[in-house]
Amino acid sequence: MDWKALSIALGSMAGIGAVLGIVLAWGSKRFFVKVDERVEQVEAILPGVNCGACGFPGCSGYAEAIVTSEATMTLCSPGGAECAHDIARIMGAEVEAVEPKYALTACQGGNVPNRFDYSGVHDCRAAVVPGMGGGIKHCTYGCIGYGTCARACPFGAITMNDKQMPVIDEEKCTGCGRCVEVCPRDLNRIDRESRTVFVLCTSHDKGAVTNKICDHGCIACKKCEQECPFDAIHVIDNLAVIDYEKCKLCGKCVDVCPKGVIVNLRKERRARKQARETAAKEATT
């Protein structure tokens, strides 16, 4: 056995190890960066889905922004009120209650025919085809139906029904806003739970045109405008628009709309809210 070679190898490796170890130890002292421990605590509370609803790059980015007080504590919509409360406890502050928000698609489909055969990529953003006058459907405002929003949803809250329209499950929806970002037609919106009356159409086509191509499109008949006791709904550029400053959510426009364009979600949402509150009560007792 070559003892000399062995001892040289052992000695040099031990030497390298020792030198590097000392240098690293010195370096970690010399270049020590103080990290606020609250950042880690806040990050542990956040849901960790990195959806970006808060407007920061991921949950860790938001946690850092909270601790450096660049951001308020209520921006996390997947985490909701509970999350904001926990964060407030760490930060030593109180927050007012956060109302849940849900996504909503401002189009009901309504059997709009296609203008041409499309065999391209199965994605709304591709099927909009700007060069061909605005997409494959006859309605250039409405849903294309290739489910880009359903695929983008991080929570599986959007499914496509048999009419190729997105259906939003408000049990799963956290109001993060991913679907709003991806929709090339800008049909999805996020709104507070208590706001329940919506015009589910965005078409500015003339009434006669809309009437011909869509079963559930606003035809600008102005019946809602006449019916509204609060002067809160107006037909602007061939489309009924609700002024939520004035709207009292009475739902009279919903009843008179001949095309079923306006909806009131109050009943369903009230039932769900009650169920949630009873569940919360049971959990606390």
């Binding site: 190898a9 590097l20 690293l24 270049f31």
Partner: peptide, 30 residues
Amino acid sequence: FKMEFYLDIVSFIVVIAALVQFVELAMRKL
């Protein structure tokens, strides 16, 4: 020291890992 035939990989790994670690530390601060 005539160790190039059997100690290259081992020493390289150690040196690279430590070097990158050190650069990371320094970079974070500076």
